[in-house]
Design a binder for these strands. Structure first.
Lengths: 387, 387
DNA sequence: ACCGACCAAGAAACCGGTTTCATCGGTAGC
DNA sequence: GCTACCGATGAAACCGGTTTCTTGGTCGGT
């Protein structure tokens, strides 16, 4: 332990000398290292402008304790404000921490304290605007709370998802946010028993209060209803990923709206796609190739709407004059489509924020409630009246 | 310590009894808990179907050691394959781990081993398609490497960025990826000294080999050159965020291309915007309000291009017949703009992947090299020939 | 002035791993 | 047949904190 002995050896010199602390060369004023010396020389760490010390990597609570002539326990108490400490000692500790640029080792802290201040986020869809927005919300909701999000990718695979959760648990996360995904409900149920968990963007039966999602059936209904209200009767729908619950529910909403309006459901108008723009293109091409007559399209999401809109453009079919489109999600680009896309707005960022806030309260055992966020129609210019 | 004493107390009973281990009620066969008992009853954890044990939360290496009648050290050696272990013992350990559904506590592991298997990602721009794509790349590049990304948001604020880095260091990250951002180079330099660091989407002098970025000057140049090649002379440019280096460099490229073509630079054609679609709208409005004549637009990025395209549409100016547009980034929506947007493609996802792969090699002290990714023009349909 | 209550603070145990070091049994070499 | 060596293994130290338990000192009450 070269650092320690070095400190001791030079202890009473009182001169500024190069000092080897924990293998790092620092220039410091040893006077301030003397135990009870009240002088207030400020110490500058090597290469570090004052107030920005960042090479705290190696300084431990033990170093602080020695420098402030107190025990580790007392330093810990000061840091966590966990019990009363005499003002004088507190001051000494604070000073020592400042001077050494101490940054607590949160790994050690996690191990000892049992809480990691880390929240696992299981996501499947990095790259999709909607899920990205949720993630963004989660990150910003966690800002300045002391918690950090750690991401794992379940890549739309049930096994991988479970594996990722196990890894996250191994990392001793304090809570888990599951964003969408395929992980089986039984697995999630068993996770929930031992870990505060919130699910976003997916509806799980029995999870009321821990499930941040919007009513996709209602969304699908409103999208369709809007077109019906504008006089459309031949409304095509481009469905999302086959077994994706959002896709299924939106389609349900579509069916219900059609039915409520007394329109007969025509299978020719239904295209099984996914959530990609390419699906939108292919859907329109297919519709036209099959000679299906339609005056409006309900798209599984905005990306699909973009694709559909382009395909229509290619055929010289004007939007909204010749064909109307309604999207779903209201991603950032939607209002800058030409024409701006009428779509179902999902408050994705807010959902993420709400989820992380709720989760933290759940962890802290505080009362919380998930806001009742809902999807609503943003009427823009991609729908026209049909007479 | 109810669990331990309970185990001790019942140690020689040899019957299946409910057992309180570490506060969790399990039904298990105590025979197998006896130190040298060779019986092979399989144990099923409460409520957990075999093969999917997920309540590993509380099982420690000590439990495995006892069950396999070996020492903690041996278990550790088996787990890490760090030194030779007799096949028989290895088997016993493996079996015990499987039966108990053991998942190592990576917090403890980090503390003891000095490596956290965690990589910090400092990002500023969650919500921007370009930076999201980079993050996505980082996440997928880290998949199955054993490393997990932990995100911190520097929210475009230098101080916050430094603070976030400190926090990340406190979490004992093994490496750091800085995505864009405003953090001062001096700070990054000092971070780099003690932590493997890679910067993505930003050029830093002196960081050759640790800096994953594309040549924005060249990108700006090519965008402009393309328009010039197509006969345009009055080329407007919508600049990005004032002090953003990407924005500055793209603008430089524009100037250079203009100059190389012998076109005089007209300040009226330069609009100081940011990277938002709204800026695109405002730029076009301003250009037209000021009566500035132009036949083409170079946009700071695709979002700006979308905005500009919409504003032109509103004025009845056709794209590309009346005005051409070139974007920058090639975000997913670009090829579904109407018309599909000609833009400078940035391999954002690949950049993220490359960055995380390089970082991991850097951590492992393996040789690595960052691929020389470059931005290239994707010619689509938003530019037409000007005669 | 004496005694009990109380409080601040230090010593030590603990969190769950990894790693060093010492030991022990076995084998090879002479 | 005895010793030197080797390799597997366990005991114990360690990582850097938190928390419990204990102690020594102060304060108030009688």
């Amino acid at each position: 332990m070269p650092g320690k002995s070095n400190v001791k050896a030079c202890h009473e010199t009182g001169y500024i000398v190069p000092l080897l602390v924990k293998g790092v060369l620092r220039f410091t004023n040893l006077v301030t290292m003397t135990d009870r010396n009240p002088l207030k020389y400020s110490v500058r760490l090597e290469g570090t402008p004052p107030g920005k010390a960042m090479d705290s990597s190696q300084i431990t609570i033990q170093d602080i304790a020695e420098r402030a002539s107190v025990s580790k326990a007392t330093v810990s108490r000061v840091i966590n404000n966990s019990s009363k400490v005499l003002p004088a000692k507190r001051k000494a500790v604070t000073k020592a921490m400042r001077e050494l640029g101490y940054e607590p080792n949160s790994v050690a802290r996690s191990l000892a304290g049992g809480k990691s201040m880390t929240i696992g986020v299981l996501t499947q869809n990095f790259g999709s605007p909607y899920y990205d927005a949720i993630s963004q919300g989660i990150i910003s909701g966690m800002k300045a709370t002391g918690y950090s999000p750690i991401f794992a990718d379940g890549r739309w695979d049930q096994e991988a998802g479970v594996g990722s959760i196990r890894t996250l648990i191994g990392r001793r996360i304090d809570g888990l946010i599951v964003v969408g995904g395929e992980v089986a409900i039984e697995d999630l149920n068993s996770v929930r028993e031992k870990l505060p968990t919130i699910v976003v963007g997916r509806e799980l039966v029995g999870w009321e209060g821990q499930c941040m999602h919007i009513d996709n059936v209602k969304g699908g209904y409103e999208a369709t209803k809007h077109l019906i209200d504008f006089g459309h009767r031949r409304i095509a729908i481009i469905r999302g990923i086959q077994n994706h619950s959002d896709a299924i529910q939106r389609f349900e909403g579509y069916l219900k709206a059609i039915e409520d309006a007394g329109i007969e459901c025509d299978n020719d108008l239904i295209y099984q796609g996914d959530f990609s723009a390419q699906a939108g293109v292919m859907a329109v091409n297919s519709l036209i190739a099959r000679g299906v007559h339609f005056s409006a399209i309900v798209a599984a999401n905005d990306m699909v709407a973009f694709g559909a809109r382009l395909a229509l453009h290619r055929r010289g079919i004007r939007v909204p004059e010749d064909a109307s489109i309604v999207g779903f999600d209201d991603q950032a680009e939607a209002q800058f489509m030409t024409p701006p896309l009428t779509t179902i707005h999902q408050p994705a960022v807010e959902m993420g924020v709400a989820a992380s806030e709720a989760l933290i309260k759940l962890i802290l055992d505080e009362p919380y409630e998930l806001p009742q966020l809902s999807a609503d129609l943003r009427q823009r210019e991609s729908v026209s009246r049909k007479y």
